[in-house]
């Protein structure tokens, strides 16, 4: 376990009902870096995020974040600890205005007085949000909605962003924009944990990569090393890794 890890999972078991999806997942996520989680469909990538964020119970094992144990924290406790989670798909309230969607992102702020300022600052940073402040969130394009989701999370000034397949359904231009924002945040010291289907593109802009298969970490390494790893091709061709590969 490296000293500069902000998030660690230690033999985490979790799943849905009787189904176990995370089979002793162990991982160590570096601070102020972008780490992309890749793996075949159904590997448990989204399940890992939901478990970390407290939407699914940890059955055994432990999770630590920023120096404290956060196993089975509620989402609210995770927010208070400095993590935010942006799930896959559309995560806005379609009938509320852009401004009111943003405002709900501030519910977990310890000091509510700062919310108007923060909203103002975030609109400064994303002028599109100011332009559309009074429009229903449903009128935004997919990419604009994703920006809204990211901006809403940034109101809390998070240390860690868990973001699940942000590029899905977005135009290539918009994907670039979202990735640029994430890199910018990383440069400011924010840790980004990302899931992406387009593994190659995502790893190219990441610092680290984590390969998850059948609920276990198969590879944890620098993104460049993973890109150069011949086993990755095998994995994504559906071959699966031999058990001896083990977790890094």
């Amino acid at each position: 376990m490296s000293a500069d890890a902000i998030l660690t999972l230690d033999s985490v078991f979790a799943g849905y009902g009787k189904m176990t999806i995370l089979n002793g997942t162990t991982a160590s996520i570096r601070r102020a870096a972008i780490t992309t989680v890749i793996g075949p469909n159904g590997a448990g990538k989204s399940t890992m995020f939901k478990t970390v964020f407290g939407l699914l119970p940890v059955r055994s094992g432990s999770i630590a974040f920023d120096g404290k144990t956060v196993t089975n924290f509620t989402p609210r406790q995770m927010l208070d600890a400095g993590a935010i989670y942006i799930p896959q798909g559309r995560n806005v309230f379609p009938e509320l205005s852009v401004r009111h969607n943003l405002e709900l992102g501030g519910v977990a702020l310890p000091l509510q007085d700062v919310l108007p300022q923060r909203i103002d600052a975030i609109m400064e940073r994303f002028p599109m949000l100011r332009e559309k402040a009074n429009a229903q969130a449903s009128t935004l394009s997919g990419g604009q909605q994703k920006l809204l989701e990211v901006a809403r999370g940034l109101l809390l000034d998070p240390k860690l962003i868990l973001i699940d397949e942000p590029s899905i359904g977005l135009s290539p231009l918009m994907v670039q924009e979202v990735f640029t924002i994430l890199k910018d945040l990383r440069d400011k010291g924010v840790t980004i944990l990302l899931i992406e289907q387009n593994a190659k593109q995502a790893l190219q802009m990441s610092d680290y990569g984590l390969v998850l298969e059948q609920g276990q970490t198969r590879i944890e390494n620098a993104a460049s090393a993973i890109l150069a790893d011949p086993r990755i091709a095998q994995l994504f061709l559906g071959g699966g890794l031999p058990q001896t590969a083990g977790a890094a």
Binding site: R76, P87, N91, F93, E103, L104, A108
Partner: peptide
């Protein structure tokens, strides 16, 4: 009201409401 909008949010998408820290 913000309270009311938190209620609407809960009604429209309770999981998302929880993710944002709404009680």
């Amino acid at each position: 009201t913000r309270l009311g909008r938190s209620m609407q949010a809960t009604a429209q998408n309770p999981t998302l409401a929880r993710i944002l820290g709404i009680d």
